[in-house]
């Protein structure tokens, strides 16, 4: 990132142009936002996205520091580079927002999502579902005689792939948490 005059992890310069031109390509970015855990803070973040017409592909939020009243919101969003820069700058403007990190441009990061899938079936289909679950390292967290609930953790792509395989085998319900992400290294 040196040519762009941006220090890694810096959000002070988040409004600066990251790319040589305003490109029209749509990119997907994962943003990690540390906020004060106060009433309405999530509404402020979501209201910003809806009010200004930005996309939310996935969103997760939970308190991460009970003593310090801080929560972490992870948002996966899409847009042109200019829109992504605007989103970060607009998020940074919200008073209870402490930090906005664009994990997609700030170096390598780890992304994980958890999903629960209910698969109903009998006979060979039921056995096949169990076999595939094993390959995907999904765990069986509940079972009845005619259905399983699988728990799977991984990147959104991996969960998509697993869900696609389960669909013909009797997938009846799915619940996904959305992405949680952390940068690699210190």
């Amino acid at each position: 990132m040196s040519a762009l005059k941006i220090k890694k992890g810096s959000n002070k310069h988040s409004a600066y142009n990251l790319r040589p031109t305003f490109s029209d390509t749509i990119e997907s970015h994962t943003l990690a936002i540390v906020v004060d855990n106060e009433p309405g803070v999530l509404a402020r973040v979501i209201g910003l996205f809806s009010g200004r017409g930005y996309n939310i592909d996935s969103l997760t939020v939970a308190e991460i520091d009970h003593q310090g009243h801080q929560s972490r919101i992870t948002i996966v969003t899409t847009g042109t580079p200019q829109v992504i820069e605007q989103i970060k700058a607009q998020l940074g403007r919200i008073v209870p927002v402490h930090d906005v990190h664009d994990l997609t441009v700030e170096g390598a990061s780890v992304e994980r999502e958890l999903a629960l899938l209910k698969v109903a079936g009998e006979g060979e289909k039921r056995v096949e579902a169990l076999r595939l679950a094993d390959i995907f390292r999904a765990n069986v967290v509940d079972s009845t005689l005619d259905c399983f609930v699988f728990e799977i953790t991984g990147t959104p792509d991996k969960i998509d792939a697993f869900a696609d395989l389960m669909r013909p085998l009797g997938l009846s319900e799915i619940a996904r948490t959305g992405v949680a992400a952390l940068p690699r290294g210190r």
């Binding site: 988040s14 142009n17 605007q86």
Partner: peptide, 15 residues
Amino acid sequence: PSSINKVIRTDIPIV
């Protein structure tokens, strides 16, 4: 910072 590059691309941004 959100005013910069919002509408017009800026060559020298100063926050």
